[in-house]
């Protein structure tokens, strides 16, 4: 009875299909998801080392390295990066210039991971008058330096400001061309190893209202096409932070090895950031829940940073959006926190 057999088989197959979740629910997965990362040691690098993002997303993750935030910004604008960690200052440049990205989470608040390093004998920000100070242009450190000048009432005309990429700082420092630099790890530790000492850290500027952080941004088109992957990404990021907090020393060693950096410096930088738990980020203390995001701390600091960059002549006042809340999307965060 061959025909009867086929009927039974077909019926069985049909039943099997019905038992499966509807096809529309299963999200299509791209062949590769591109992450943009910078050289700074961060917990999510744990997921680069053991490929936990590849496993969670169910596809290949390509990690693209950038020497500084502005370079990553250009790649984001070109659509060459899907998800990226970037500083709050380049993020603001991107949002003001209408790069199609969404801010999905805070990755870490800069506390002591970025600091102003000066030569022995220069002990205060004010004492920088008459000296040369270097900084990576367009970065959170650049913003923090200018903020420090303002807070400490430094006569800016008496300071020689030098734009240098982080990688070029050490050479200029060793030659004696610069007397101070505002920079992040591992470069800050390199300067400290060459007779430098920190005279200010970014967290010292918080009381004066300067709030600097790193965030995760996602390409708009990617977020619309693969919302499930963005949720999985955030959840896995949360896991890496938990792993780091459970074992800072061991994690720092893994991250340093992955980035080919000095373990002690990596540990120091990792400890110099504050990692707000994902389940707290949907309050106005951070990003807000989407309805109250206009009053959230992060939204306000984006607006402050934007105004500051206009003052500096870097951005056009006409380009400024009235509100930064529409660029923040915490729906992925809500799902990531709710997911088991």
């Amino acid at each position: 009875m061959p025909i009867g057999k086929y009927v039974i088989l077909a019926a069985g197959a049909l039943a099997g299909l019905l038992a499966l979740p509807p096809l529309s629910q299963a999200e299509e997965v791209p062949a590769v998801v591109r992450f943009g990362y910078l050289n700074g040691p961060r917990p999510w690098i744990l997921g680069k080392a053991d490929q936990s993002f590849d496993k969670a997303l169910g596809t290949k993750v390509q990690w693209i390295n950038f020497p500084n935030g502005p370079n990553e910004l250009n790649a984001l604008a070109a659509g060459e990066v899907d998800i990226g960690r970037i500083g709050s200052v380049p993020t603001v440049s991107a949002l003001v210039r209408k790069v199609p990205i969404k801010v999905i989470a805070v990755s870490g608040v800069i506390a002591t991971s970025e600091r102003l390093i000066a030569r022995k004998g220069i002990d205060s920000v004010k004492a920088l008058e008459g000296h040369a100070v270097a900084y990576p242009p367009g970065s959170t450190a650049h913003y923090a330096l200018l903020a420090a000048f303002k807070v400490h009432q430094v006569d800016v005309s008496k300071v020689r400001q030098v734009q240098l990429k982080p990688g070029d700082l050490l050479a200029a420092w060793k030659r004696g061309d610069i007397d101070a630099a505002y920079v992040w790890g591992p470069f800050s530790q390199q300067l400290e190893g060459e007779n430098g000492h920190a005279i200010l850290a970014t967290k010292d500027l918080q009381p004066a209202g300067y709030f600097l952080f790193n965030d995760y941004v996602v390409r708009k088109e990617f977020a619309e096409k693969y919302p499930g992957l963005v949720v999985k990404f955030l959840k896995t990021f949360g896991d890496t932070v938990a792993r780091y907090k459970a074992d800072p020393d061991g994690s720092a060693a893994i991250i340093a090895k992955e980035l080919d950096q000095d373990p002690a410096a990596a540990k120091d930088t990792l400890a110099g950031l504050i990692y707000p738990p994902l389940n707290e980020q949907r309050t106005t203390a951070w990003l807000g829940d989407g309805h109250d995001s206009g009053n959230a701390v992060i939204t306000k600091s984006f607006a402050d940073t934007a105004r500051f960059l206009v003052e500096q002549g870097e951005l056009r006042a006409a380009d400024l959006p009235s509100d930064f809340a529409p660029f923040i999307d915490t729906s992925f965060l809500a799902k990531a926190v709710a997911a088991p």
Binding site: L73, P90, S93, R97, P137, Q161, Q163, L309, E314, R316
Partner: peptide
């Protein structure tokens, strides 16, 4: 902190 080349590099840092 000046020059046409620097102008291009600096402006690109802010997506100008």
């Amino acid at each position: 902190d000046s020059g046409m080349g620097w102008m291009v590099i600096n402006a690109s840092s802010y997506m100008r």
